[in-house]
Amino acid sequence: MAAISSDNRGLRLVMRYTVLTLIAIIFVFPLVFMVMSSFKPDLQLLRDTSSIRAFLPVGDISLNNYFDAFDRAPVGLFVFNSVLVTGLTVLFSLFLCSMAAFSFAFLEWKGRNILLSIVIATLIVPFETIAIPLLLMVSKLPWIGFEGFSVGWLNTYRVQIIPWIADGLTIFLFVQYFKDLPRDLIEASRVEGASWWQIYTKVVMPLSGPVLATAAILKFLVMYNQYLWPLIVVQEETYRPVMVGLGYFFQLNTAWGEIMAYLTIITVPVLAFYLVLQRAFIASIASTGVKG
């Protein structure tokens, strides 16, 4: 009996790992294809797509595509712009959305539930529907900066950052997480004499690692992949982010090798960011799954 059941378990384990490996390969292959192709000249790259060679570093391998990509477009500037815009948006978003959620979750005020419903309802509004009104709005907004007073936010960093800081999904994530925190902790802090600000900074935020990671990664992906909004509000190269920069490689003749090199470069920040927060991200997904 024992032998049979252990055989069964072994077999099941093998099957499970086979399936998981297959899924992993399916997900990894496009990335492998991208990286391998970035080392190949266009002709070979196109020829290799018909065989397994597309995924292997074979043939005429060089870094020429990378040099050419940097020649064709200010790749460093685009990556810098995207990392700056994304980083600042993520930071501001974590701070402001968690504060809004703190209020929704812990403070008592009139109209709280209705306002929370409205905030959550904004999740179903696609960005395309508000893009034009938002464009008209930001084009007329005033600003006081180092250069003095100005009107219109077009061709700036702030136009790519500020409209994206607060969003329903991030607030909703924080609210849900905060509501699962033991209420006694908050009440104990109040009895101890902590102000709401102290409860936020000393109790709630230190316990919010998982949701901070989740919200940060989701926001990062949205911001790093921005295309439509920067395309319409940024015409100057100085403020252009990576996804809009991709357009440089489709002008005149499409250089596939350079595109792959460019894509490889702009993927690095995403992977780095994910790897840093991976553990907390998985922990948060696991905890939301287990909690009943």
């Binding site: 033991p182 006694d184 902790l185 009440e187 104990a188 802090s189 109040r190 009895v191 101890e192 004499g193 902590a194 109790v203 230190p206 316990l207």
Partner: peptide
Amino acid sequence: EPSKRGIAMVFQSYAIFPHMTVRENVAF
């Protein structure tokens, strides 16, 4: 406010802060 009443409360769930050491909890 609770903190102004001169009371201290012990909760059923203990309500001690998981991210602090015992010393930090007691001294909160």
